[in-house]
Amino acid sequence: MSWLIGATLFWLAAWALNVRLAASRFGATRAGRITVAALFGITLLVLWEGLVRGFAVSPIILPGPSVIGPKIASSLPILWADFVQTVIKGALTGFAIGALAAFAAAIAIDRSPFLQKGLLPIGNFVSALPIVGLAPVLVMWFGFDWQSKAAVVVVMVFFPLLVNMVAGLQATDRLHRDLMATYSATYTQRLLKLRLPAAMPFFFNGLKIAATLALIGAIVAEFFGSPIVGMGFRISTEVGKLGLDMVWATIAVAALSGSALYGLIALIESRVTFWHPSQRK
């Protein structure tokens, strides 16, 4: 009972503090904003711990942060190996290949009405294939190691990126196009100086969607066969051993990697599309 009361009191106190901090001059500074967010995060962890202890929740159903934290600390070498296998080799490789392929395909589709009629429906069709059906097939084709996971990721990220990029290439103002016409600009000049820059906000939207898809794809694909390393492998085997603390540790790593990847793309986006109304400072 004392755990429940303690957690609730901490929550209320942190809440009150945050309200005051956010309204104060300190809250407007960068350090202030980080403090407020950090306090909120810590409060969530304390509440979680308090509820798990207060209601004596079985660690199989939900372990508290006090169990997961030490597990992460004591399993760093394993978690790191899993991270390299799944995120770096599987997800990021597939993400890069898929993004480049979608970029090139979008330009080709945009150039040729024939491809527009042919390739887009095929891309649509492939994206409609259920990933749990496709993953085992790709594992058969490309083997147990990360290559097959990268292949699954390519299939998952390709279509959202393609659709966004094709839309982006068509998103130029008529005025901007007329201007190019009055200069008698060539196709390549129009592409490089007008249409690609104008397409960038769309492309980055696609990248942000694809970033989370890539991680999901790489983890899920490991359920269908993998070497004895990788986040998906870890989750599926630890669940079998009732090692839920390790499952949660892996989930934490996955969540952190996903957020970091998203943040990185958003950062690059703000540099590349600084001119777009949504990014102007």
């Binding site: 103002d173 005025l175 901007h176 007329d178 201007l179 820059p197 599309t273 600084f274 001119w275 777009h276």
Partner: peptide
């Protein structure tokens, strides 16, 4: 010169 300036924002 068009009705709007039509400058490229980037």
């Amino acid at each position: 010169v068009f009705q709007a300036a039509g400058l490229y924002p980037w």
